[in-house]
């Protein structure tokens, strides 16, 4: 069942422009000039129930604007949006009962209250009867391992504990879709990993659809099976994580430490990334040269150490961001 349907969605912002200096400031009062910025430009996609989808892109790509239109915060200019068969801008209140949102950089909790009081508050906001709310809070606090700090005021919690509380607050009303906008921003690697595990567990237990934006590639890699990459307001890639890894992953990194210097200078498909005495770091374009052919060029007797790795996913994504050349990468 499709829970999100987006067709030809566009959103433009009118932004005031000002010439430089004091003169420009005065001029902008008398003759204000505006320019139209197309933040989202004719995008279409669907999301199935229970999917965990990453919606990523560089800063200013239009991902947050899209999330805000999907949650009814922003009005669209053109196109159609259906979230759980509701139009977010017309049925915003109705939709609010069915979706949850966590904006990593915006707090929704009351800082002076404990997570428990906050959860009760959110339960009341979502019209959940007291007994049902208590049961739900207990269930979620167990799932998110919150027993040790559920009665500590939010202002005294660590960032990781606060983010966990934020996510639980968004889940009190048992939403069908959870929108997570950079939920692990500012967290240390251990806490990040913990949050990811909990999100995964929640998706498994409640079949909650997860719509995630993040700049952290590990968030995307570990949580999502499907990735949509946006840039300049357009979708530049919509594919499964496996396809992204294997189709676009056509470069290997080979690091060799040898007894004697090896010369690869004239080999097509091999780029020397780093060379320091007998230490070499090579990038192999597997479309031009097989890895086994490269290895044949190295005398095994000469090798002290060798390490072969994939191009980091982060690099692949940033190449897609930079060049917008998805097709080229695919080939």
């Amino acid at each position: 069942m499709k829970v999100i349907e987006v067709k030809n969605l566009s959103k433009s912002f009118k932004v005031k422009i000002k010439e430089k200096g004091f003169k420009g400031s005065l001029k902008s009062i008398i003759h204000p000039k505006y320019k139209i910025i197309k933040a989202v430009n004719n995008i279409s996609f669907d999301v199935e129930e229970g999917e965990m989808i990453a919606f990523i892109g560089p800063n200013g790509a239009g991902k947050s604007t899209t999330i805000k239109m999907l949650t009814g915060i922003l009005y669209r200019n053109e196109g159609e949006i259906k979230v759980l068969n509701l139009d977010p801008s017309k049925d915003r209140k109705k939709l609010a009962y069915k979706i949850g949102t966590v904006f990593g950089q915006k707090e929704q909790l009351w800082m002076h209250l404990t997570p428990m009081d906050n959860f009760k508050f959110f339960a009341a906001i979502y019209d959940i009867p007291e007994k049902e709310a208590e049961k739900r809070i207990e269930e979620l606090s167990n799932l998110f391992e919150m027993e040790s700090f559920i009665n500590t005021p939010v202002r005294n919690l660590s960032l990781g504990q606060r983010i966990r509380s934020e996510i639980v607050a968004s889940l009190i009303h048992n939403p069908k879709i959870l929108f997570l906008d950079e939920p692990t921003i500012g967290l240390d690697p251990v806490v990040k990993e913990n949050i990811r595990k909990l999100i995964k567990k929640m998706n498994k237990e409640y079949n909650t659809t997860i719509f995630l934006t993040s700049h952290d590639v590990l968030d995307i890699e570990k949580l999502c099976k499907r990735v949509i990459i946006v840039n300049n307001g357009r979708i530049v890639m919509d594919d499964t994580m496996n396809n992204l890894k294997y189709h676009y992953l056509n470069k290997k990194i080979v690091e060799v430490k040898s007894k004697e210097k090896i010369d690869f200078n004239d080999e097509d498909g091999i780029t020397i990334l780093k060379e320091k005495e007998t230490n070499l770091k090579l990038e192999i374009d597997t479309r031009k040269k097989n890895l086994s052919d490269v290895l044949k060029l190295i005398d095994p007797e000469n090798i002290i150490d060798i390490n072969i790795s994939n191009t980091p996913l982060e690099q692949i994504i940033s190449e897609i961001y930079k060049d917008n050349k998805v097709e080229k990468l695919k080939k």
Binding site: W110, M111, H112, L113, D117, K120, F121, A124, I125, D127, P153
Partner: peptide
Amino acid sequence: MKKYLFIYKSEIMSSLQY
């Protein structure tokens, strides 16, 4: 109205902290 009374109550609880 119940939810607004809860907002009111939560703010009282919060302001009791300072």
